[in-house]
Design a protein around this nucleic acid. Structure first.
Length: 103
DNA sequence: CATCTGACAGACT
DNA sequence: CAGTCTGCCAGAT
């Protein structure tokens, strides 16, 4: 297991705190995790989430408010967001000004 | 141990 | 507005 201060663990705790019906960006998660320029690693952590994780990873999008995944993965994230009231265009575009979570 | 590769972002050209 | 470069850091090769 990772020690509590590891980057992955900090990311887990932050993402777990994002309220339902809201979204935030990879960069924001990285910033809150204490590594303002490690946005890319946030994606890396979420990508390797253990099977069956209850972490709301779908509430994390890129700085443009767009879903960064492609193909079927994009549709899964889109559906997850739609089901909790977040409007998402067919291409995966979200209105950040409206749904962005402010810490 | 050296390199490469990203679910990104910000600064710069 | 579209490329290009760099920081960051875990995993894979």
């Amino acid at each position: 297991m990772d020690n509590p201060d590891s980057f992955p663990m900090r990311v887990y705790q932050i993402v777990a705190a994002i309220p339902e019906g809201c979204v935030t960006t990879y960069g924001e998660v990285a910033r809150l995790a204490g590594s303002p320029r490690a946005a890319r690693q946030v994606g890396g952590v979420l990508k390797r989430l253990p099977e069956g994780s209850q972490l709301p990873w779908h509430r994390v999008v890129n700085r443009h408010g767009a879903i960064s995944l492609t193909g079927p993965d994009l549709q899964r994230q889109r559906q997850a967001l739609l089901s909790e009231g977040v409007q998402v265009s067919g291409s995966g575009q979200i209105d950040l000004a409206r749904y962005r979570w402010r810490y």
